[in-house]
Design a protein around this nucleic acid. Structure first.
Length: 224
DNA sequence: GATAGGATGCTCT
DNA sequence: GAGCATCCTATCC
């Protein structure tokens, strides 16, 4: 474990170097919306077979826990599936959905609360060749991690990352601060994608102009 | 380009 | 048993 409690604006990302730079724990103890905004521009780094590769986060969604009907922890629900949502801020909540897709959240708040931020999209900055090999259906590089399941697929993130401390620089999946400051004016917000309940709340955030931001589609009930 | 429908299995009610 | 924090492909314009 590394000392993560000292914010350092000089931190820079270099995937070729060590894994010793992660955001401070205090960053994730704030309110969910602030964390969702602040995650934009950060990098999610994945270590695989001794090599680091990763993506710059360009789109997030805030899920506020017990009082958010769209959250997996709505009404205080606690189960084996969402147990990691109740860990301290900075851990990973990974879930399997639609019978085939993995999606990853960054837990926020204090231990015992269940708010989280879904990583909806990223642009691959390291290991594009590896991401391409995992995402053969992608026609262009900006499509490699456009969408929460695609992001996980491109980086090879699955249930093995469940509960990972993303601020542990030695973990297989870690967070890194932005390589360059993010212009607050470039951050946009709007309704969340694909949720059935509370779909009009503007808790989705993205970086304006990024091609990897996913296409907004409001949830529509499906027949089987 | 936009849209509709199928795939797939886990989770909750 | 119904629904799902999704993605891919085919089809239509």
């Amino acid at each position: 474990m590394i000392a993560n409690n000292r914010p350092d604006p000089r931190l820079r990302i270099d995937a070729a170097e060590s894994s010793l730079t992660t955001p401070p724990r205090a960053f994730f103890r704030r309110d969910t919306e602030s964390v969702a905004r602040g995650l934009l521009g950060m990098h999610i780094a994945r270590r695989w077979r001794g090599r680091w590769y990763g993506a710059r986060i360009v789109e997030t969604e805030a899920y506020l826990g017990a009082n958010d009907l769209a959250s997996h922890a709505r009404r205080g629900l606690r189960s084996a599936r969402n147990e990691s949502m109740y860990l301290a801020g900075g851990h990973a909540y990974v879930y399997f959905t639609y019978g085939m897709h993995w999606c990853m959240n960054v837990v926020c708040g204090q231990s015992g609360t269940a708010s989280a931020v879904l990583l909806r999209a990223g642009s691959i900055v390291d290991g594009v060749d590896l991401a391409r090999s995992r995402r053969l259906a992608a026609r262009a590089d900006f499509e490699l991690a456009r969408g929460p399941a695609r992001l996980c697929a491109a980086l090879g993130i699955d249930g093995s990352a469940y509960g990972t401390d993303l601020l542990d620089g030695a973990a297989a999946v870690t967070l890194r601060p932005p390589a360059a400051p993010v212009d607050a004016a470039a951050v946009r917000s709007g309704p969340r994608v694909g949720v059935t309940d509370a779909h009009d709340l503007p808790w989705r955030f993205w970086l304006d102009g990024e091609r990897s931001v996913s296409v907004y589609r409001r949830h529509s009930p499906r027949s089987r």
